[in-house]
Simulated scan of single mutants.
Amino acid sequence: MHQQLKESLWAYIVHNNPELMFNLQEEYSVTRYLEDKVSSVMPKVLQLLEQDKPGHVILELCMEELTSDLKPSKYHYIKKVLKQEFELFYERFKEEGILTYEAINLIEHCEPVFKELCFCRDNEDNGLIWAGVTSATAEYLRQFHSQS
């Protein structure tokens, strides 16, 4: 179960939080991060095993706990902003194979907005966050366009 949780968590991060994936790889701390996170839910795994819960239920419950601080995904939010508000750039980045790279750059560029407006599950649909991220994205894309 320990290994399965590590693999599932890594797959989740790769798909939903590639900025974290790159940071962990850059710092050579992938293994430590995954070990620490999964170790934190092992008491819950043991408790659920004692309750005779099926493996898929244990995996689902533990993954929810392991990923709670990774939600909502800034990566998916940025991609949604790009696709809806800057479709030409979105398609260009996608065609050039740099969409993930540029989305990660945009996460960093928009981080002050995410922090100031407390981006989280409870307010990810907040119009102020959308407007702030859209504005910061437009600023970033103006710089990108002027360099192209």
Rank of each mutant, 00 (worst) to 15 (best):
T67S: 09
K94R: 10
L82Y: 04
F89D: 12
K94V: 01
L70R: 11
M63I: 08
L66Y: 09
R92E: 09
E65R: 04
G97L: 14
F86G: 02
R121T: 08
L99N: 06
I129V: 10
E95W: 14
L106G: 04
V81A: 08
K83Q: 13
L99E: 02
Y101V: 07
S73Y: 03
L117M: 03
V113K: 12
I98W: 06
A131Q: 14
E87Y: 15
K115C: 00
L61G: 07
K115R: 12
F89I: 06
E116S: 08
Q84V: 10
E124G: 03
H76G: 01
Y90K: 04
S73N: 04
L66A: 01
V113S: 01
N105I: 00
Y77T: 02
N126K: 00
L88D: 11
E116M: 11
Y77H: 06
D125I: 07
K74N: 06
E96T: 07
H109A: 13
L99H: 02
L106A: 08
K71T: 13
K115Q: 14
I98E: 04
T100G: 01
S68I: 09
V81G: 09
C118P: 03
E116H: 09
L82K: 12
G127K: 14
H76A: 13
I98R: 08
T100Y: 06
H76W: 14
E64G: 10
C110E: 12
L61A: 12
Y77F: 15
Y77M: 04
I107C: 10
G127E: 14
L66S: 07
D125V: 02
P112E: 06
A103E: 03
E116F: 06
V113Y: 01
A103Q: 11
K115N: 02
A103I: 01
C120E: 10
V81Y: 15
G127S: 09
E95C: 12
V113L: 09
M63F: 10
R92G: 09
M63G: 05
R92M: 05
C118N: 02
Y90G: 04
E65F: 01
N126V: 01
L117E: 03
E91I: 13
L82F: 08
K79I: 11
D125K: 04
L99M: 09
K94Q: 11
R121Q: 15
R92A: 03
L117Q: 03
C120K: 10
E96H: 06
E102W: 08
K71P: 07
P112L: 12
F114T: 00
Y90D: 06
Y101N: 07
L66M: 11
L66W: 04
I107E: 14
L117I: 01
E102R: 12
L128H: 12
T100K: 13
I78C: 10
K80V: 03
E65V: 05
E111Q: 15
G97Y: 00
A103N: 01
L106Y: 01
R121L: 15
G127I: 15
N105P: 05
P112G: 07
D125A: 05
L128M: 15
N123L: 09
L106F: 11
M63S: 03
N123F: 02
L61D: 06
D69S: 15
D122C: 15
D69T: 08
L70K: 08
